[in-house]
Design a protein around this nucleic acid. Sequence first.
DNA 1: CGTATTCCCATGAATACCCATGAGCGCCCA
DNA 2: TGGGCGCTCATGGGTATTCATGGGAATACG
Lengths: 148, 148
Amino acid sequence: MQRFLGRFVNKLDAKGRVSVPAQFRDVLTKQGLKGFYCAPSAIHPGLTGYGEDFFAEVDTKLKQLDPYSSDYAARATQAFGDVDYLECDPEGRIRLPEHFTAHAAIQDRVQFVGLSQFFELWNPETYPAIHAERVAELRRAYRAGGAS
Amino acid sequence: MQRFLGRFVNKLDAKGRVSVPAQFRDVLTKQGLKGFYCAPSAIHPGLTGYGEDFFAEVDTKLKQLDPYSSDYAARATQAFGDVDYLECDPEGRIRLPEHFTAHAAIQDRVQFVGLSQFFELWNPETYPAIHAERVAELRRAYRAGGAS
DNA sequence: CGTATTCCCATGAATACCCATGAGCGCCCA
DNA sequence: TGGGCGCTCATGGGTATTCATGGGAATACG
């Protein structure tokens, strides 16, 4: 398995720890990581997680910019400044910092959603609405294009 | 980890000392340093910190310019002028010289922001506005049709 | 000789490590 | 094909370390 796939709900314990789904851990391991990069979504109350492959791509692109330009500052702030590397403990859990749980309104459970290159983390109660919204958008797009 | 990532706020004590975030220290250690190079930003009330690697990057780029041009002088000044090497004490703290704290209007706390190749130091009260400004710039870039 | 800086030790809180448990699943064998 | 066995995985909690911070003492500097 080399893509993040599937949906999982795991428990956030009293110490702020969550088990990363074993399938996701496998993918990360193959990218040489013991954890993942995590960032708040700019538009949704959710978090994005990704591995070295995706991250390195962004890194490489940004390195081609002038590091003193405001363009670099703006992009790097989002790509790196708001990002944390979350490393798994020996049991395969990560600790979600408080500012992340706050952004996603996560309390005692975490919804993982695999989206191939990366995955998302949601409050399990928030996610269904987001999912429905995305499906609806898909339908609109199909209708506009005449497909079924 | 080999990049400066994430945000941290540490306290500046009565002696002018601040703890460098442990994650940043790790990166610097891997570059063979016990501290970091620090320079005031030319345009913002903030400071820039970086290790050996970034020096090399900038050096390489500068070598592609005409060393007698005013462009070279300007960029070299930005990169290497006004720079101090701040070495950590045994506890991992550095002492911020007065002209640096003055430039960044830093008083009793320091906001560290990792931007991959280097990081920034701000007054924690100043930074949110800068952050917002950068996010706004990103949005403009997206709207203008910029790729990611 | 006074001031500034660095070293050293102390402390509490936050964090990571270690071990233990039990449920779920697949596998194997009869 | 049904039952049982073993393994992996998610989870809990106790304990050791790390980390940020504070302050006193020793050292360097002018």
